[in-house]
Design a protein around this nucleic acid. Structure first.
Lengths: 323, 323
DNA sequence: TTGTAAGCGTTATCAA
DNA sequence: TTGATAACGCTTACAA
C-alpha cells in the first residue's frame, strides 16, 4: 500500500510537504506542488482516512445507517443523501447493522443519519455531542445534538381517511406496523380520530398487528376473510402490507375496491402498478434534507428543531365510491 | 470520545491489558478481564477502527460499492452480502461513489465487492493485491486477485428468445443497455444468435440504444411507433426499459401482447405487477455468493475463477402466441 | 519554502 | 499476569 512516505521519497521532499500539498496549504512552492501532484496521480495515491481521521478529527465523511432491505424506497433516500453530500464535498458511507456504532466517532465520520430502528435512542443520546451531530429519520429524540426529520404522518393520514369516509365508507379494518414505532402510532391515531370525529365505531378485533412487510398484510387479509363480516375498507399502515392484502383478496376471488377497498402509505414503486390509493412520501427529498441539516450542524450551526415533511395523498383504483 | 486510555485509567490497568482483554488474549487474569469488560460496557466503548486498522491491518470489514439508485434490486444484493458478512463476523460498509477508493486499503477494509461500472478496471487492477482481494459483479477482469461473479446472460437470453420464436414471433426490435457493459453485449449477442439460427432477418434500424433506465425504453418505444411497420416483439435488455416501453405503447393505444409483445431481463419488483415476461436473476444469492468468495479469499484461499450464476426464465402476459 | 518531531488510538513486542 | 514502548499513516506546530 503506497503511503505518504513513498510519495515524499519519490518527490524528494519531506512528508509534511506532501501533506501540505494535499491539504492545499499555501506554504509550498509551485514546482514542488506540481511534482507531488504528478506523483500522486501516477501512483493513484489516496490519503488513508484512518491516519488522517486519527490525527485531525475532521473526516469529511458522513454515515448513513439503515437495515430493512424490504423497503425499496430506501434507495431513494440514499440517493437524496448521496447527492447532497457529494455536492458539498463530503463522502458517504452506509452501514446496515449495529456495527455502525464503531464508525460513529469523529475520527472516522463527522456525523450520522440514522434510519434503522434497531439503533436505540439511548445509544444515540450517548454518542451525539457537540462535535458529533446526528440526524434521525422517522422518530423523535429530544437532545441538543440530534435533529429529527419526520414525515407528517398524522395530518396526511387524517386527510386520507376523511376523504374515504366522505366517499361513503363506514366499516373499517386496520393493519398496523410495528407498534413501538412513532410513524405507526401516528398513522393509527389519525385513523382513529377520523372515525371518532365521524361517529364511526371501531372494534379492537378489526385491528391487525403487522410488521410493514408484505407477508404480514397478506396474513392479516387471510385472517380477516375468515370472519363473518368483511369491512368496506382495509386501511394499512404502509404499502407493502396493503399489497399483500390485495393479493390475498384477489386469490380468494374478492374484487378491490368493489368488495373491499384498500389504502396504503408510502407510494412505493409497486403502488402505481397495483392501483393502490396511498400517501406519497418524497423520499429523495427526505434524504436530501436530512443530509443538509446534518452537514449544516457539522459546520457549526445548532439547528435541532424537529422538521416535518409534508406528504401527498394519491387516489387510485383501490378505493371507489360507496353509495 | 472515550478511548482505550480512559478505560485503562478507570480499571487501574495499562492500555495493553485493556487491549488484550478486548482481543480475547489469554494472558490476562480473570478478575481483570471482568473489570475491564464491565467498564467498557458502562461507557459503551467501541475500539476505534481507525487506530486499530492503522496498526494491525486486519480490519474485519468489507466494502461494497454501487451507485445506480434506479435499480431497486440492488437492495436484495446488499441484503445477501449483509447476511453472509454478518454470519461470518465481518462488518459491511457501503460506498456509493468514487470516493470509495479511499476506503479500499487494508487498514480500513479487507476486501471489496464492486458493482459500480464507474469504477474502472485499471483502478481495480492497481488496488487488488495479495492482501486486498476484490470481487466484481457483472464484469470480467483477468487478475489473480480479482474474482468475477456474473450472471449467465447469454444462455438464459438465448433460451428466452428461442421460446419466443417458437411461439411464432418473427419480427423483432431490440432496446440495448449501455453498449460497453458486458451483460448488455451478451444479451444482445444471444438475441442475434437465436435470430441467425432461425434464419430471421434483423436490421440495424431495429436496434435502439438505451441506458437501462425506464425513460430510455419509453423513448425507444415512442421512436419505434413512428416507423412504418412495428415488430411483433420488442426485446429489451432489462426490465426498466421494458416497462418504459410498455407504458409508451399503452399510452398510444397499443395492446401488449396482441399488438406487440415485450420482454425484459431482471425480474424486478414491478415486472410481476406489469405481467412482464422476463428473466429472473437471483439477486440475494448473488450478493451472498459474492460475499462468500470475497471472505474466503481474504482468509487465504485463492479462488479467482469466474463464477456464473444461472438465471430463470419467467413467462408472463407480455408475450403471447402468434399464429 | 521546507523539514523535524509529536501525537492521534490502537496493537504487538518484549521486558518485568 | 502485567506494563512500557514502538509502530501504523497522517497532520500540525514549530524550527530551520
Amino acid at each position: 500500500m503506497v503511503g505518504i512516505k513513498e510519495i515524499a521519497k519519490r518527490a524528494g521532499v519531506s512528508v509534511s510537504t506532501v501533506s501540505n500539498v494535499l491539504n492545499n496549504k499555501k506554504n509550498v512552492g509551485e514546482d514542488t506542488r506540481q511534482r507531488v501532484h504528478k506523483i500522486c496521480e501516477e501512483l493513484s495515491y489516496h490519503p488513508n482516512p484512518a491516519g488522517r481521521g486519527l490525527k485531525s478529527g475532521k473526516p469529511e465523511t458522513i454515515l448513513f445507517n439503515f437495515s430493512d432491505f424490504d423497503r425499496s424506497f430506501y434507495l431513494k433516500i440514499i440517493n437524496g443523501i448521496s447527492d447532497y453530500v457529494n455536492d458539498n464535498d463530503y463522502d458517504l458511507i452506509i452501514c446496515t447493522d449495529k456495527s455502525c456504532e464503531k464508525y460513529m466517532n469523529n475520527s472516522l465520520t463527522s456525523g450520522s443519519i440514522i434510519l434503522d430502528m434497531k439503533m436505540r435512542d439511548e445509544v444515540l443520546n450517548r454518542i451525539a455531542s457537540e462535535n458529533y451531530p446526528i440526524v434521525v429519520l422517522d422518530r423523535f429524540i429530544d437532545n441538543p445534538f440530534i435533529k429529527s426529520v419526520v414525515v407528517n404522518n398524522y395530518d396526511s393520514m387524517y386527510e386520507l381517511i376523511q376523504s374515504v369516509v366522505d366517499r361513503g365508507y363506514r366499516h373499517f379494518g386496520f393493519v398496523g406496523g410495528p407498534e413501538e414505532t412513532a410513524d405507526n402510532k401516528e398513522r393509527y391515531q389519525a385513523f382513529r380520530d377520523v372515525l371518532a370525529a365521524n361517529h364511526i365505531d371501531f372494534q379492537q378485533k378489526s385491528y391487525f398487528a403487522g410488521n410493514y412487510r408484505e407477508k404480514s398484510g397478506y396474513t392479516a387479509a387471510k385472517i380477516l376473510m375468515l370472519s363473518r363480516e368483511l369491512p368496506d375498507c382495509l386501511v394499512c399502515a404502509n404499502d407493502n402490507m396493503a399489497i399483500g392484502a390485495i393479493k390475498a383478496f384477489r386469490e380468494n376471488g374478492l374484487r378491490v375496491p368493489q368488495d373491499i377497498a384498500v389504502t396504503g402509505f408510502d407510494n412505493c414503486d409497486l403502488a402505481e402498478a397495483m392501483g393502490l390509493t396511498t400517501i406519497s412520501i418524497p423520499n429523495y427529498e427526505r434524504g436530501y434534507i436530512a443530509a443538509r441539516y446534518l452537514i449544516e450542524n457539522i459546520r457549526g450551526q445548532k439547528n435541532t428543531e424537529t422538521f416535518k415533511i409534508a406528504a401527498k395523498i394519491i387516489f387510485r383504483d383501490s378505493v371507489g365510491h360507496k353509495k
